[in-house]
Simulated scan of single mutants.
Amino acid sequence: MDTNRKTTLRNAPKPKTASYKYSFRLNEEQNIRFNELLCKAGLEHNRSRFIVKRIFGEEFVVVRRDPSKTQFVTRLNDFYFLMKETCE
């Protein structure tokens, strides 16, 4: 039995990159402000990415989804295709 495995893309060793970890503490007032900033940015679930972008001044875009606008666009598209079918 051959114990040597073929190296494929799935089991190929991944290149190691340097990774550094930092921690900090916030008081109650700072924590409230931090959570407000997270909510405004829409990044409640990715705190580390938010912190890195804020530290290095990288731009981040907040995309807010409004369900009422989605429904409006859907109905508008339906109306458009209905009108298109009747005109043909």
Rank of each mutant, 00 (worst) to 15 (best):
R10D: 15
N77R: 13
H45C: 07
S23N: 15
Y22T: 03
G57C: 04
V52A: 05
E88N: 04
S48I: 10
E59C: 01
K21D: 05
V62G: 00
L37V: 03
V63Y: 09
G42P: 02
K21S: 11
N77Y: 04
R25Y: 09
Q71P: 00
V61I: 13
R25F: 14
R25P: 02
F60A: 02
N4H: 03
P67I: 10
T7A: 05
E36K: 06
R33K: 11
S19V: 09
L76K: 04
F34S: 11
A12H: 10
K69V: 12
Y80C: 04
K69S: 02
L37A: 08
E88M: 04
P15W: 09
F60G: 01
R25V: 12
V62C: 03
N27Q: 08
P13M: 11
L76Q: 09
V52G: 00
K14L: 15
T70D: 15
L9P: 03
T8G: 05
V62K: 13
A18E: 15
T70H: 09
I32E: 12
L43E: 04
Q30S: 10
C87G: 02
R75N: 08
K21H: 10
K14D: 12
E88V: 05
Y20E: 15
V63P: 00
T74I: 05
T86S: 07
E36Y: 09
I55V: 12
P13S: 13
T70Q: 12
S19G: 06
T8A: 04
L82I: 04
F79G: 00
S48M: 07
Q30V: 11
S68A: 15
L26M: 15
Q71W: 00
N4P: 00
V63R: 13
R64H: 13
S23F: 10
D66Y: 13
F50L: 06
R10A: 12
N27A: 10
S48Q: 05
I51L: 05
V73E: 09
K69Q: 06
F34I: 12
K69D: 01
R47H: 04
N46Y: 06
S23D: 10
L43V: 10
E28L: 09
R5H: 03
A41W: 04
Y22R: 12
V52P: 00
R49P: 00
R65Y: 08
E28D: 15
N11P: 13
P67H: 13
E28W: 06
A12T: 10
N4F: 03
K6D: 03
R54N: 07
P13W: 08
S68C: 08
T70V: 12
A18R: 15
P13L: 14
K84W: 03
L43S: 07
R64S: 14
V73F: 07
L9A: 11
E36A: 12
L9R: 12
T86I: 07
C87I: 14
F72D: 02
Q30P: 05
K69T: 05
F50H: 02
R64Q: 13
R49E: 13
T8P: 04
L43D: 01
K16P: 00
